[in-house]
């Protein structure tokens, strides 16, 4: 109970005999639109929680604002549905204080790459042990179809009726450009097996794992991923023993690229490539420095602190 690590004693999870079924992680009924890719992501996450037997009360999902950010409500864990763009600072505060908690972050593309861009860059650099999911539907969905940084150039939205004028932002290249980023992966919600395998790899990574999940919005941005969904040849799987290997989908996705996730230069080339949409782990380096680890200080009891305060006051004594 009193292992000295973190800002407070690491609290051992309550002893439990129980086995958590997938249904044990079900919260409120999901209110996303029928056909929304978020349903599939929720299902994969619940499967992961059960497979890893995460204690619901030891698990926290933090989100911002957007359709995707409703995620925590639909889980039976602790949840923090915060403000637009700011999930990462909250998650950082939680993890710095409570290393015993398993903390996940769920963000939309507007949330993460636009209003929250500063936090995103710096969170990658802090490399706090968080599992971070970007649910990228290439559109602002909750606010009804405005252009987001990841909306394809030329895509018509309510704020760009003539089509978006700028080339879209590539979240993978941005993430891979951040010093001290330690895990960057891409997967797609319409390939549940790949999604699950990637979430699992992300969860097991120590440090911040950033997963961009390509996610269909059937109402506002169907066209964004339609071609890729319909034509598996547009997708290339990154395969490596240190990445994710999903044999059951290899028959569908015939194009495969052997890629060692430790090779940052190759990862950046893949992120920038336009020939295929690459799914898999682009980069992984568990040896990167972790802010939550290096800032960890031994906790103090109230009495110890009192003695130290007295000594501190001596410095100011008249």
């Amino acid at each position: 109970m009193t292992a000295t690590c973190g800002l407070l004693p690491v609290l051992e999870p309550a002893e439990h005999e129980a086995h958590y079924e997938i249904t044990d992680y079900e919260g409120a009924r999901a209110r996303w639109c029928p056909g929304c890719g978020d349903h599939s992501i929720l299902a994969s996450v619940q499967k992961l929680l059960s497979a890893e037997q995460l204690t619901p009360e030891q698990t926290v999902f933090v989100s911002g604002i957007g359709c995707s950010s409703r995620f925590p409500h639909y889980l039976r864990t602790y949840g923090f549905h915060g403000i637009h763009g700011r999930a990462l600072p909250v998650a950082t505060g939680i993890k710095l204080t409570r290393p015993d908690l398993q903390v996940f972050v769920v963000m939309g593309d507007g949330d993460c790459t636009s209003i929250g861009a500063a936090h995103w860059v710096h969170a990658l650099r802090y490399n706090v042990n968080l599992t971070v999911l970007l649910l990228d539907n290439g559109i602002y969905a909750l606010t009804k179809k405005q252009t987001s940084p990841t909306t394809p150039q030329g895509f018509v939205s309510n704020t760009s009726p003539e089509g978006g004028v700028l080339p879209s932002l590539n979240p993978l290249s941005v993430a891979l450009g951040v010093t001290n980023a330690s895990f960057v992966a891409q997967t797609a919600e319409w390939s549940p097996a790949h999604l699950y395998a990637t979430l699992r790899a992300a969860y097991h990574h120590r440090g911040l794992s950033f997963v961009r999940i390509l996610q269909r919005c059937p109402i506002y941005s169907t066209a964004v991923y339609q071609a890729a969904v319909q034509d598996p040849a547009r997708i290339a799987l990154l395969v490596h023993d240190d990445g994710v290997v999903v044999p059951e989908i290899e028959k569908i996705y015939k194009s495969q690229v052997a890629h060692d996730p430790h090779d940052l230069a190759a990862a950046r080339r893949i992120a920038d490539a336009t020939d295929h949409i690459h799914l898999g782990v682009l980069y992984r380096d568990p040896s990167r420095l972790r802010y939550d680890e290096i800032r960890r200080v031994p906790p103090r009891t109230a009495e110890e602190r009192l003695t130290l305060i007295d000594a501190e006051l001596d410095r100011y004594a008249v």
């Binding site: 933090v62 700011r86 990462l88 600072p89 909250v90 950082t92 505060g93 939680i94 204080t97 500063a118």
Partner: peptide, 15 residues
């Protein structure tokens, strides 16, 4: 903004 968020996260977590 992030400073407020980190403090709120820490408070939410029990401090």
């Amino acid at each position: 903004i992030a400073a407020a968020g980190v403090a709120i996260g820490s408070s939410y977590a029990g401090k």
